[in-house]
Every structure is written in structure tokens, then in C-alpha cells.
Design a protein around this nucleic acid. Structure first.
Lengths: 168, 168
DNA sequence: AACAATACGTCAGCTTTGTTGACATTCCAA
DNA sequence: TTGGAATGTCAACAAAGCTGACGTATTGTT
């Protein structure tokens, strides 16, 4: 493989050149920074980090989820999640209730206060995404989602697809 | 704003519902994990991290770049970059040469050994992206790139556009 | 009833990668 | 020649990941 111009089997494969793939890699890197920039500013004021944001996001999306479930969605260890979860519970943003059927489990919910922060964070993040979506239009958005889904690990994709999506 | 179904101004704006935007946010989160998973495995063997990968990537893309320029591309402090850069130079993967015109500047290049690692890392990352691109086709890829570019900060987009792209 | 497995929490210690602040050196330019 | 810019280095710290070990409560299995 070389960085230089390559013989193409057809014009339709031009998007698979090393150069184009590199541009895609860089686009992911740079875009992810923008993607997290707005919530990061809000989190900094409250002395929280991205890990708190992720926990809040997925507790909002799956109210009543267990610690174990959240662990596998986030892909971190229980020690790592516990540190974050403990501060959120202490600060009254997350409620942890003993399982009814299985008392070993803890079910996680956002408190009203937690929901307020969740809303602020996701508003900030959605604003940027909404602006991007408006700029490029529905067809580009569909392509965007398709590529992202295709880039996920199989196991991750299951988590992704399990999240509710009322438009489908 | 509410999570529930919302009155639409038209069918064409269905993709701007909170739910759809949330799905986009989750897609970014999950896809970014997949995006970094393959190079991470290679880096772990060599006791390097993602910060090393990023430095290597952009030194490869802009040979002879200065430390200051790299700083602004990566968006980190000089102290943070220096730590990474120092190990790469010690390990013989990166060469730092005093500037000819301005001797305060250091120009960074990959050594042959550094180029070998760069190739291994980017091959791994490109393989996944290539597979995704093949799955979804050129139109979706174009949309993917458009959305990512629209999500970047203005300053970041300048860096992105400054990177060479021989197909444009 | 005894035992094994599961879910969760916690302690201790370590790593990577980011941050500030302080300070020295080198060099260009006014 | 003096001021500012670019670089490098030291120290200290924080966020957020990791492993390993251990304790407790609960549940499932034999």
C-alpha cells in the first residue's frame, strides 16, 4: 500500500483510497472534539467529567437500569463506574433503589435534579448536532448514521440498537 | 422541549426530533469506541497510548511540523505533548531537528522505525473504516463526512481542511 | 442445609493523559 | 540591548481508566 495516487478499479471506489480513509479518520477525531466541547463546558462548572455525563445519559435513556447493565453499556469496570455513581448519588442526581425481584440489584434513576442536568447537557449537545443536521440535510444524516453503525463492534451495536428510537 | 412525539412542521424535519438527535449522539459515542479499538490493541503491546498515536498520525501527515503547530492541532498543552514526544524521540520513532530559519523551532519527522508503527496503526484503523465504507457505499460516506465537518468548531475545521487530500 | 455464583460496594495501588505554575534557555526583532 | 516568543523541564495535581483483593447480601443449585 502506498500513499500516492493508486490505480482505481472504477470511479465508484475513489472513496476507498488511503487518502480518503485518512480524511475520514481525521474527521472523526476532530468532530468528536466538537461533539464533546459543549457539554464539557457545563460539566466543568459543576466539577463533573465526561464519565458523569455518560452515566447520566444512559440512566436517562434506560431508567431503572442495573449497575451491571450500565457497566456493559459503558464498557468500564465496576470500580470506575462506582466512583462516578457514588458522587452522583451523594449529590442527589441519581437514585439507587434495591431490586424488587432480585434484591442484589440496584436500579438507577435520575432524580428531578438529575433530570435538570441531563436536560442541560443533552440540549447543549443536541444543539450542535441539530445545527449540523440542518446544514447538511436528511440524506447526509442517514449516511452519517449508517457509517457510524457500520463502524461499531458487534457487541456494541447490540447495545446501540437496544436503545429506544421512537421514529423507527 | 419534551421527549415525546412532537408536532412536525413537515415530514422532512422528522430527522430533527430529540429522539433522532439522541440516537445520533449515541451513535457517535459507540462508533468512536470501535474507531479506536484496533489501534489501541497495537499500542498496548508497545506500552503506548492514544496520545502517542495522535502525535504519530499528525507528524506523518505534516512532516516537519513544529511543536507549536502540533500543539494547536491536537489541542493539548505543551507539557502534555512534550511527555509523549519525549518518549517517542527516546525510542527512536520521531526525529526532532532544530529549525533552519528559526532555530527556536523543532521540526518533527517520523524515523523509518516510526513510519513502520504509523503504518501498522493506520492500517488497523483504516481496515475498519474501509469495511464500513464498503458496507454503506459512497453516498453514505459523503453524508458521513459532511455531518462530521459540520460538527467541528470553526478553528478545528481550519486544521482539518489544511490537511492534504489528494482526491480534492 | 450447604455451597457456589451473582451483584454490588469498597479499599489500595497503579497508569495514562490531561491540567497549572514556575523557571531557564535560546534566539529573533525592534 | 532589551523584550518577547518558542521551547523545554520540574513539580504537583486531577480525571478516569485499570487490576486485585475482600466483604456482604442475595439467589440459585445440589
Amino acid at each position: 500500500m502506498s500513499d500516492g495516487p493508486q490505480p482505481q478499479t472504477g470511479q465508484s471506489l475513489l472513496f476507498l483510497t488511503d487518502e480518503q480513509l485518512r480524511k475520514g479518520i481525521e474527521a472523526m477525531f476532530f468532530a468528536y472534539r466538537g461533539f464533546t466541547a459543549d457539554p464539557d463546558r457545563i460539566l466543568e462548572e459543576k466539577s463533573y467529567g465526561r464519565a458523569h455525563h455518560r452515566a447520566i445519559h444512559f440512566i436517562h435513556r434506560s431508567p431503572g437500569t442495573t449497575v451491571n447493565n450500565l457497566l456493559s453499556i459503558l464498557g468500564v469496570t465496576k470500580q470506575s463506574l462506582n466512583r462516578v455513581l457514588r458522587t452522583l448519588i451523594e449529590d442527589g442526581l441519581v437514585a439507587s433503589t434495591v431490586g424488587k425481584k432480585d434484591k442484589r440489584e440496584r436500579h438507577l434513576h435520575l432524580t428531578p435534579e438529575g433530570a435538570v442536568l441531563e436536560r442541560a447537557l443533552s440540549d447543549a449537545q443536541r444543539d450542535r448536532m441539530r445545527a449540523a443536521y440542518r446544514t447538511v440535510g436528511p440524506d447526509a444524516v442517514a449516511g452519517f448514521r449508517q457509517v457510524l453503525e457500520a463502524m461499531m463492534d458487534d457487541q456494541t451495536r447490540h447495545h446501540y440498537e437496544a436503545m429506544k428510537d421512537r421514529t423507527e
